[in-house]
Amino acid sequence: MTAQIFLQIVASGLLMGLIYALIAVGLSLIFGLMDVVNFAHGEFMMLAMYAVFGAVVIIGIDPLMAMPLAVAALFVVGATAYLGVVQHAMRAKANIGMVQIFATFGLAVLIRGVSQFLFTSDYRNVPAERNLLGGKTIELGGVFLPLPQLVGAGISVLAFVGLWLLITRTDFGKALEATREDAGAVALVGIDKNRVFTLGWGLGASLVGLAGAILAIFYYIHPDVAAPFALIAYVTVALGGFGSVFGALVAGIMVGLAEALTATILPPALKSVGIYALYLGVLFIRPKGLFGSL
């Protein structure tokens, strides 16, 4: 393996890893807040991809401009999912863990079905002529950095910084922190738990919405598109530690790199085995993931 090829693998793994991290962080955030694994997370991402596609085709704007739109739309989707489904699942008196898994799993199947009904099963692509970044790439010393992924990775980093500021510097962040520490006690200091949860779901969905909007620039879109990404997101979250934002970032990058490296060493068809081995290896040493406390 030449140095150039090695650099290319690291660069590609890093760029993809940052996007994986952004897909995973919303899931981790929601889990940290209220101990719920959202099995419809991938479907949220798929909806964001359709939102971008729709904005590009109907309004005629560039996918980059459509990003805020997708993020806003997903905030509504996330908040609605909480108010319409998860809130009720939380009230269950028995088997609360299973109820949440299957309520969100049912929601996932429902979203896929509705998407197929509304958008049909056709494979969609953001039209190249309205896609400023699509297919563009820059070359640095023989290493190719595709612009969509590069910009996507940059946005991902910015999103993580923003999220960190939000959690540490704002009242909402403090309420979020307090609620995750002790959801019962916050009521005493006048924080509406339900409101925090609703906003938390909106935020989590927005983050995966942002990731979906980035993917829409260079990935195809159809109702079942999210399944492989969702699996990676679950592994990333467990690897980083449920509830840890920083863990999601580190784990995402590790997963991206592990995938790229495995595909070079083993037959590419087995590249996910590298991710799984990394994950199981870490879990063996740290049963709660790299940065997990829950």
Partner: peptide, 27 residues
């Protein structure tokens, strides 16, 4: 029909039963 109606029915069913009867139907 090829329009995902079966998925809609299946998804709704799973969701509704999980929410309506968290202890399960035998309860």
């Amino acid at each position: 029909t090829g329009r995902g109606i079966d998925l809609i029915v299946y998804g709704l069913l799973v969701m509704v039963v999980a929410l309506a009867r968290p202890e399960g139907i035998v309860s």
